[in-house]
Amino acid sequence: MGLNLRAKLLLSLTTVLAVLSIVGFMTLNVQSDWGFIVQHRGSRLLGMLLVAITMGLATVVFQTITHNRILTPSLMGFDVLYVLVHSLALLVWGVGQNTGWPVELRFIVEVAVMVSIALVIFRLLFTDSVRGLHVLILLGMVTGLLFRELAELAQRIFDPSEFSIQQGSGIANFNRINVQLLWVGLIGVGLCSALLFRFRHQLDVLILGRDVAINLGIPYTKTITLLMLAICVLVSISTALVGPMLFFGLLVANLAYWITGSHQHRWTLPASVLAGIVCLVGGQLVFEHLLNSGLPLAMIIELCGGVLFIVLLLRGVKQ
C-alpha cells in the first residue's frame, strides 16, 4: 500500500526542491537589512505558500469527489464567483474603508455567501444521476464564463481603483499579495487542511464512486457537502490573496498524480502542495532573481496549465 521506489524518489526530489525554493527566495540577493527582508519577502512567501496549499488541496479533493482529472474548481468558476460576491459586497457596504467593519470580518461574510451559492450550484450539477464527463466540463465552463462576465460587469459599475482583488487583466499577481488578509487566510487554510487530511481515508473510498462509498459506510451527502465547503473556503482565500488562477490547480493536481502514481490521499494531498510550492516560490525565485525578468510568473504557470488542459482533453477524447 506504500509508494514504489520511483514515487519515493520523485517525492523526495520535490520536497528538496520546495525547501530550496523557500530558502532561496528568502536569502538570494539580500541587500538591505534583515528586518525589512523578513517582513517584505516573508509576507509574500507566506502568501504564495497559502496559495500553493489552497489550490493543491482544493483541486485534488474536487477531482476525487467528481471522479475526473480534468475539471477543477477554477474551471467551474468558483474563484470568479468569489470575485463576483466581493464586488457585490462592495456595492452593499459602500466603497472605501470606513464602513466600520474590519476587512477580515467582511472577508468572512463574503466567503460565507460564496460558499452557500457554490453549494447550491454543486447540488444542481452533481445530482445523484451520473452525467457524462464531457457534459460536466461543458456545464462547468458555462458557469465559469457566466461568473467571469458578471464579475467584469460589476467591475465596470464600480470605480476600478477600489476593486482591490481583480488586478490588471484578471490574472493572479504574486507581487501584490493582499497582505491584510494573510492572517485570516492562514487560519482558514490551517483549519481546512486539517479537516481534509483527517478525511484522507474517506477520500480514498470516494474515488470508487458513490455506490461503493455508500456500501462501505460513508455518509455520502454529508461528507460531500463538508468537503465542498472546505474547497470553497480554500478557493476564496486563494482568490482573495492573489486573484483568480484558471489552470494552476489543474497543473499541480496532475503533477501530484504523476509524482506519486498513487490513489492514496495521504500521498497525493501533500504532493500537490509541494508541487505548488515548487511552481510558485521556485518560479518566482527564478524569474525575479536569476533571470531578472519582468515576465509575470502567473502567465507562465497558466500557459503550462492550459497546455496540460488541452492534452488531457485530447487524451480523454481518444479513450
Partner: peptide
C-alpha cells in the same frame, strides 16, 4: 482491502 474500511476505517 477497501472491504475492510467499515471495520478499520482505512488503517489495516
Amino acid at each position: 482491502a477497501f472491504g475492510r474500511f467499515p471495520h478499520s476505517g482505512g488503517r489495516l
